[in-house]
Simulated scan of single mutants.
Amino acid sequence: MADVFSRKQRSEIMSRVKGRGNRLTELRLLDLFREHGFVGWRRNAAVFGRPDFVFFKARVAIFVDGCFWHACPTHGAIPSTNVEFWTAKLDRNKRRDRLVVRELKKRGWTPVRIWQHELRRPELVLRRLNRVLERSPRRSAMKR
């Protein structure tokens, strides 16, 4: 079915649509933290790269990456329209993600990236987070 709006009108309409980030995937991880007694985490912390969750004492920064926006090798796909734009956009996102990981490591942080699809297997995510937090030199961020 053809669009009833011109390309310019559609662009104007879509530019007004405001995203909510990856709020739902973040909330899934938040529920896991609460359910399993993780303490010491913060959201919206002013840390380089804007991690979704931060354990300050353990110096662990957690990012929940959406499969589309971060070009998941398993589920990421480039839309069939405007391919050039989306390829460039997703490549920039991947480069930024690598830069953030490198910079956080330089600053003494442990960055953890969790794919959106990994939250379907919470037991694996929890095992990984426990392992990272237990290795932390400051173990006070572990579970109660």
Rank of each mutant, 00 (worst) to 15 (best):
R92W: 02
V83I: 09
V132P: 06
A141V: 13
N22L: 15
R95P: 00
M142I: 05
C72F: 08
D31L: 11
A141E: 11
A58N: 03
F53G: 08
N82L: 07
G108P: 01
L126V: 13
F68N: 09
L32M: 06
I114T: 09
F5T: 11
V132S: 02
V101W: 02
R138P: 00
R7V: 06
F68W: 10
G40L: 03
K143L: 10
S136H: 14
G19K: 06
M142N: 15
R98P: 00
R34K: 12
R96V: 10
S140R: 02
R131A: 15
E123P: 10
G37Q: 04
M14G: 04
E35G: 11
S11F: 09
A46H: 10
H117T: 06
P111K: 00
K89T: 00
K94Y: 05
T87I: 00
D97I: 06
R10S: 03
Q116K: 04
I114A: 03
S136D: 07
C67L: 07
A45Y: 03
P73Q: 15
S15Q: 14
R20S: 15
E123I: 04
P122V: 02
F53A: 07
Q9T: 08
R50V: 10
P137A: 10
F38K: 02
R139C: 10
S15M: 13
F38N: 02
G21D: 01
A46M: 11
L129F: 11
R120E: 14
R113N: 10
G21P: 01
F38T: 05
A71L: 15
E118M: 14
V60E: 00
K18N: 08
W86Y: 01
R28D: 09
E35V: 02
L99F: 02
E26Y: 14
R113Y: 05
S80Q: 15
V47C: 02
V47P: 01
F55E: 03
R7T: 13
S15P: 01
Q116R: 05
T25W: 12
M1E: 13
R34A: 13
Q9M: 06
W41R: 07
P51C: 08
A46C: 08
E123L: 14
K106V: 15
P111E: 00
H117C: 12
K18W: 10
R95M: 06
I78K: 06
V100G: 05
W86L: 00
N93D: 04
I114H: 01
R59T: 13
W86M: 00
D31P: 02
E26W: 12
S80H: 13
R128N: 14
F55R: 05
P137Y: 07
K105F: 01
L126A: 11
G76E: 02
T74F: 13
G76V: 15
R135P: 12
G37W: 01
L133R: 01
A46I: 07
T81P: 01
A77Y: 14
D3Q: 11
F56E: 10
